[in-house]
Simulated assay, not measured.
Amino acid sequence: MKKLVRKILLGIFFTTGGGVFAQDLPVEKKTDTIFFEDFSGSSLDRSKWNVEGTDFWVNNEQQIYIDSSATIFTVKGAEAGGVENALVLKAHYSPNYLNYRGNDFDFISGRINTRDKVMFTYGTAAARMKLPEGSGYWPAFWALGGGDWPATGEIDIMEYVGETDWIGVALHGPGYSGETPLVNKYFFPEGEDVTDWHVYSVDWTPEGFNFRVDGRLIYRVTKPMVEIYGNWAFDNPKYLILNLALGGAYPYKTNGVEEPYNGLPQSTVDLIKEGKAEVLVDWVLITQ
């Protein structure tokens, strides 16, 4: 089945839980797959993915990442949310798990990337994902350059901070990092939200970016738009990242929650304790 999905994606359409939408690519365009992962193995394929651990922490996030089958694993059948098999990134409440840089961490979660294993310059990167309901969750699908940040650029293909009716996309680089002006929110049509399966993608060319949800164009950024603010940081290889963060800077700026954790309300802490902090990923695809 997933081979069929890949063939559809390499043609004209994205197939999603909400239907079939035109991808706005000409029929005659030839597309080459440089990476496809359907998470059909019994565990994460370490030849394709790196797992990040406790030595990484940014943005005042309230979780610490660990390399564990508790936070990063694959599932099949009923546990896969309606698809054949999927990757799960799962957060857990784990009081006093670690003190790092003077901070006590009560939550653990998962973050993976393709750095030095799958790097690409230009093309389309897409992932089909199902996200959890809960204010202060901060999962993302994004890409970074192999060098220093922000000099080698950041492409945020999908960010979600717990308001189920929208996701965000953004670009970061020298002169436009952090509170970047190159950002947009996409609000789902009535009857859809982030808890459904959706395809999040970006078309990256030397001239700019087209961000899409389920094939719908939601934001276009051109190279001249970027260069108003700083140097174009998108002519170098990028690697993909999937992660589930909790609380921190972006959720806090959205929900204003300070207690019991920065950007993470008690209602979401309760969801985490109930085992409901899961991001499902059906597949990831890069084409050129």
Rank of each mutant, 00 (worst) to 15 (best):
Gly81Arg: 05
Arg46Cys: 01
Asp67Phe: 03
Ser43Gln: 14
Lys48His: 10
Asp55Gln: 00
Lys30Ile: 05
Lys48Tyr: 05
Pro95His: 08
Ile66Phe: 13
Ala86Ser: 15
Asn59Glu: 04
Ile64Phe: 08
Gly19Ala: 03
Phe39Ala: 01
Lys76Asp: 05
Ile72Lys: 12
Gly110Lys: 07
Thr31Lys: 13
Phe56Gly: 01
Trp49Thr: 01
Lys76Pro: 00
Pro95Glu: 15
Gln62Met: 14
Val27Ala: 14
Leu25Gly: 01
Lys30Asn: 03
Thr54Asp: 11
Gly77Lys: 12
Ser42Trp: 13
Leu89Val: 10
Lys29Ser: 01
Asp32Glu: 14
Glu84Cys: 00
Gln63Met: 11
Ala70Ile: 08
Gly19Phe: 02
Ser109Thr: 05
Ile72Gly: 01
Lys30Gln: 09
Lys48Gly: 01
Thr33Ala: 09
Phe73Thr: 12
Glu79Phe: 00
Gln63Leu: 02
Ala78Arg: 14
Phe73Gly: 06
Arg46Glu: 08
Glu28Gln: 03
Ser69Gly: 03
Val58Met: 00
Asp106Trp: 02
Thr33Tyr: 00
Asp104Asn: 12
Phe36Lys: 00
Asp67Thr: 04
Pro95Leu: 11
Asp32His: 03
Asp55Asn: 04
Gly81Glu: 12
Phe21Cys: 02
Lys90Pro: 03
Ile112Ser: 04
Gln63Val: 04
Val83Leu: 07
Asn50Pro: 00
Trp57Ser: 06
Gly19Thr: 02
Phe39Tyr: 14
Asp67Glu: 07
Gly41Asn: 13
Ala86Val: 12
Val51Tyr: 02
Gly53Glu: 10
Glu52Cys: 00
Glu84Ala: 04
Asp104Ala: 05
Gly41Trp: 10
Glu84His: 08
Lys90Asp: 10
Phe73Ala: 02
Gln62Cys: 08
Thr54Phe: 12
Asn59Leu: 05
Ala78Thr: 11
Val88Cys: 12
Val27Ser: 10
Leu44Gly: 02
Gly110Tyr: 09
Val20Ser: 02
Lys90Ala: 15
Val51Ala: 11
Gly53Asn: 08
Gly41Arg: 12
Arg111Pro: 08
Val58Ile: 13
Ile64Asp: 09
Lys90Ile: 11
Ser42Ala: 15
Tyr93Ser: 03
Lys48Glu: 06
Ile64Gln: 11
Ala70Ser: 13
Ala80Glu: 15
Val88Glu: 03
Leu44Val: 09
Ile112Asp: 00
Asn96Ser: 15
Tyr100Ser: 12
Gly53Tyr: 13
Glu79Ala: 15
Lys30Phe: 05
Val51Thr: 10
Gln23Cys: 01
Asp106Phe: 03
Phe107Met: 10
Tyr93Met: 01
Tyr93Cys: 01
Phe39Arg: 10
Ala22Thr: 07
Ile66Gly: 06
Ala91His: 11
Thr74Tyr: 10
Gly19Arg: 01
Asp38Cys: 04
Ile108Lys: 02
Ile112Asn: 00
Phe107His: 05
Lys30Pro: 00
